[in-house]
Design a binder for these strands. Structure first.
Lengths: 223, 223
DNA sequence: ACCCGCCTCCGCCCGGTGGTGGAGACGCCG
DNA sequence: CGGCGTCTCCACCACCGGGCGGAGGCGGGT
């Protein structure tokens, strides 16, 4: 059998800390290697005890669980530690911040003991696990966010190649004169293309063209 | 006791379909209400049988599970159906596409029977559930999305509140006249604000203001 | 050969945009 | 109180931007 999974419990409530410790030690393949009552303590203890998993409360004095997670994951010595966040409240801010801080899991404190132990094993194995409500909202957030299949082509494939060139430069902030120089065209030609862009894209002025360029993904913010 | 959870099984392999059906019917609170061997079949059957949960394979003839999910979630009559994706492979493309299509869960076919039944109950309750490996990668993907690190204030905090108002409307494509109407100002005032924006932000025209609005995050693409 | 779409260019007109300079009202603060 | 910043408004002017109509070359498709 493999070495037991080393678990560190960080929570400012002694009672909860104790019961988690007992729970962990009832499992033959898990061993509690320490308790911390603040985030700072958790970080230093983790350096000494080298746990595989830290059960971390969100709300703790001195250093909250989110920030403690961030520090653990950022420091070379402890960056292989998996953090399982345990909280009373599954508030969005907590969840997103925790996941970004590098947590591998997010469970509510009313999780059945057996599930919690299973979660520790999952997290120790390098996988991740979330409470169902958290999963749902993460999915919603994910689905709502970044639609890579931008309707780029959808809206812009009516344009000719040249028109797309001009649109791109407009979206870079160039004037008609600058575009004509840039593409070795006369200003008249540029104006023609611009007019075609207006009618094809159903807009009024170049400012609205810039909007379309961003909204369709022809231009991206970081670019 | 509540009414049993109605489950529809969609998979092109008859053997698998059958065993899932048997499994579902062993649970007293679950009832299998139909089987579909294609995505199209799943969609039409879901309209008749009104299941609470559809167990959906990704790879199916005629209409794949992703697209079938999208159709189920899009149609008013079946949009309250929860879809639980079951697949052999937890490929990234499948996962992301499925979640965006509106799936409430994503499990591998080697999931223990008990876990699968539990997952069906979770999904039927309106929550969500993912296989641990899927969860891990969703979190990574989510964390990698570099949250709007608002350089907004950095560049735009030299602006007065009113100027930001005007900038926002410019970035929506409004003309000076429209802005004046929108903010109950005279066009002269709007022009003043716009001029201030030009000098403060070191740009030449409103098209370039739109660019800045997007680049600083004052305006975001999804909005 | 013919048509059609794209790219290129031209002239004319005019209106919104943008530059400059100034002014009054209000609230804040030393 | 007297400055200071913000918000509001005005007038004048120049020019770029945009609408409109027209035209020629060029390549692809029927």
């Amino acid at each position: 059998m493999n070495a037991p999974i080393r678990v560190l419990v960080a929570d400012d409530q002694a009672l909860l800390r104790g019961s988690f410790r007992v729970l962990v030690d009832t499992a033959p393949d898990l061993v509690a290697v320490g308790e911390a009552s603040t985030g700072a303590e958790a970080v230093t203890l983790a350096r000494q005890e080298r746990p595989d998993v830290v059960l971390m409360d969100v709300r703790m004095p001195v250093l909250d669980g989110i920030e403690a997670t961030r520090q653990l994951r950022a420091q070379a010595e402890t960056s292989d530690v998996r953090v399982l966040i345990l909280t009373m409240f599954d508030l969005d801010e907590y969840v997103y911040a925790a996941l970004r801080a590098g947590a591998s899991g997010f469970l509510l404190k009313d999780t059945p003991p057996g599930d919690l132990l299973a979660a520790i094993r999952v997290v120790a194995a390098g996988e991740a696990l979330l409470a169902p409500t958290v999963t749902r909202r993460l999915i919603e957030e994910f689905a709502r966010r970044p639609e890579p299949p931008r309707p780029v082509s959808r809206a812009l494939d009516v344009l000719t190649e040249r028109e797309r060139d001009v649109l791109t430069l407009i979206a870079r902030g160039l004037s008609n004169a600058e575009i004509s120089a840039h593409l070795h065209l006369s200003q008249a030609t540029v104006k023609t293309h611009v007019s075609h862009l207006f009618s094809k894209l159903q807009v009024r002025d170049r400012a609205q063209l810039v909007i379309i360029a961003y909204e369709t993904g022809l231009i991206t913010v970081a670019g």
